[in-house]
Amino acid sequence: MSTDTAPGPAPETPDPSRRRGRLRLAAGLTGGAALLAGALFWVSGGWDAWRHDGALDSACDGTLAAGPVRELVGGAEVTADIRRDRIGSWWQCRVTEVDADDADDADDGAGRIDLRVTVSEAGDRLFDIDASRTDAPLGHGWTGGFAFDPDRENADRGDATATLLLDCRGKRGGGLTAEVRARTDRLDFGRPEARARLTAVLTGTATAYARQTGCEAVEGGPVTEVGVSATAWDHEPFGTVSGSCAGIVDAATAGRWGVRTAVETAPGPKPVEGCVLGGLRGAPLYEFTASYGAGLDWATRERLEDRTDDRKGDAPDGGYLLWAACPGGTKRAAYTVSTPGRAYETSELALDHPGLRAALQRFAARSAQAHGCGLPGTGRVYDAG
């Protein structure tokens, strides 16, 4: 048995005008929502944050390593500007916190972020970097050091300095010297990740500046780990040395000299390198220092040049000096050994002058080789820069 079903009403033909109206309404709602979201974004400060964050990508003529800066400062809003001296001997990219009160007085670092990357032509006698033999080497193919004292008080743990020497390929005598100084109470450079990020700010900014100025710099790799400065408290038994003190004197010589301890850094080329050989409790007896390019400050350079002309034969205070010619922007290096306190006190240990000269020669030769410099000698090396 079949049942007939009455046909339903014919499908209603869509009214184009009604459909357009719905589309206009939807578009209006969407546009209103977008405007509302935009207003909320603006009022909440999101626009300023986005604007400041985006501005970092082009900051300091596009040379600032914006990514490492963001990682270093976290969510803080920062801005950057360029500074130069009047005669063009140095260039600086300064990063400071946005809206910090009295930004020009931020040198105290209190409650602020203050990063300064300074770059100079290598050999510029007006610009000496703040480097020490106790700095930790950057490693990873870079010639540079990181200065942070792990024994600092909490208030100073946001202060650190890193230095860098760059050579320019195919540019005779060419190179750059760079350093970054950080002063803030928002960071703790006792943390390894903070040191690695500050180093990335330095290497990234310095190499970008080099490319802009026509210097094809010899670059290293990413710095994933960097140490801290060595201090007098870091002395270790002489028999365990494996870094900057290794191979300077043998065990028999160390015994004759009264050496029982050493303060050293990890091996690696940096602007200033060194080793301190000490007594039982780490008291310094013999200090070896190698200084390269801008790592040799003006006053020390003048004093050593005068000493080169005056010293002949055995030095009563045990202080000896060697020079080496170096490639690229480094130009030259000075290597010294000194005996702290010998000029003012009488020691029970007689100085072994031939042994001191031989030890300095070994220390200098190994360091010079790591920097690609010539064989160190007693003759003065002139620096045309």
Rank of each mutant, 00 (worst) to 15 (best):
Val223Thr: 03
Ser229Ile: 00
Val263Pro: 02
Gly214Asp: 02
Trp257Pro: 07
Ala254Leu: 08
Pro271Thr: 01
Ala210Glu: 12
Ile248Met: 04
Ala252Tyr: 03
Thr253Ala: 15
Pro237Arg: 07
Glu273Val: 11
Val276Cys: 01
Val223His: 02
Thr231Lys: 12
Val241Lys: 00
Trp233Ser: 12
Ala251Gln: 14
Val226Ala: 11
Ala262Phe: 11
Pro237Val: 08
Ala230Glu: 09
Gly239Val: 02
Gly258Gln: 06
Val223Met: 08
Glu273Trp: 03
Gly220Cys: 00
Asp250Tyr: 06
Pro222Glu: 11
Gly268Asp: 01
His235Thr: 01
Val249Ala: 14
Gly243Ser: 02
Thr261Gln: 05
Gly278Arg: 10
Ala246Met: 00
Pro269Arg: 02
Asp250Pro: 04
Glu273Asp: 15
Ala252Pro: 03
Gly247Thr: 00
Val249His: 09
Val223Ile: 13
Thr231His: 04
Ile248Ala: 03
Ser229Leu: 11
Glu219Ser: 05
Gly214Lys: 03
Ala266Thr: 11
Val259Asp: 09
Gly239His: 04
Glu225Lys: 10
Val263Arg: 05
Thr213Cys: 06
Asp234Glu: 07
Glu219Ala: 12
Ala266Ser: 13
Ala217Asp: 03
Gly220Gln: 03
Trp233Lys: 10
Cys215Lys: 06
Gly258Glu: 13
Lys270Ala: 12
Cys275His: 08
Thr240Glu: 13
Gly278Thr: 06
Thr213Glu: 15
Lys270Asn: 07
Val218Leu: 15
Trp233Ala: 09
Ser229Ala: 15
Cys245Trp: 07
Val276Phe: 00
Ala246Lys: 13
Val218Asp: 06
Val249Arg: 04
Val241Met: 00
Val226Asp: 12
Val241Phe: 00
Gln212Leu: 10
Val226Tyr: 09
Pro269Phe: 01
Gly268Ser: 09
Ala251His: 06
Asp234Ser: 15
Arg256Val: 11
Asp234Ala: 11
Arg211Trp: 07
Gly274His: 07
Gly247Ile: 08
Pro269Gly: 11
Gly239Gln: 13
Val249Pro: 02
Val218Gly: 01
Val218Trp: 04
Gly258Asp: 11
Ser229Val: 01
Val223Glu: 01
Gly255Leu: 10
Pro271Asn: 05
Glu216Ile: 01
Ala217His: 07
Gly274Gln: 07
Val263Trp: 02
Phe238Ser: 01
Thr240Cys: 05
Gly221Pro: 00
Thr261Asn: 08
Gly220Asn: 01
Pro269Gln: 11
Cys215Gln: 14
Glu225Ala: 14
Cys215Thr: 08
Cys275Leu: 02
Gly258Trp: 04
Glu225Thr: 09
Ser229Pro: 06
Thr240Ile: 10
Glu273Thr: 11
Leu277Tyr: 12
Val263Ile: 14
Cys215Trp: 10
Glu273Asn: 14
Ser244Met: 03
Gly247His: 01
Glu216Leu: 14
Gly227Gln: 02
Cys275Glu: 13
Ala254Lys: 10
Gly214Pro: 05
Glu236Val: 01
Ala232Gly: 12
Ser229Trp: 00
Pro271His: 03
Trp257Gln: 05
Gly255Phe: 05
Val249Met: 15
Gly214Gln: 06
Ala251Ile: 06
Tyr209Ile: 02
Asp234Thr: 08
Asp250Met: 08
Trp233Arg: 09
Val249Leu: 14
Glu236Lys: 09
Gly239Asp: 13
Ala217Arg: 11
Tyr209His: 12
Ala230Asp: 06
Thr224Glu: 14
Ala262Arg: 02
Cys275Pro: 12
Val226Ile: 15
Thr261His: 10
Asp234Met: 04
Val272Ser: 09
Gly247Met: 01
Asp250Gln: 06
Glu264His: 08
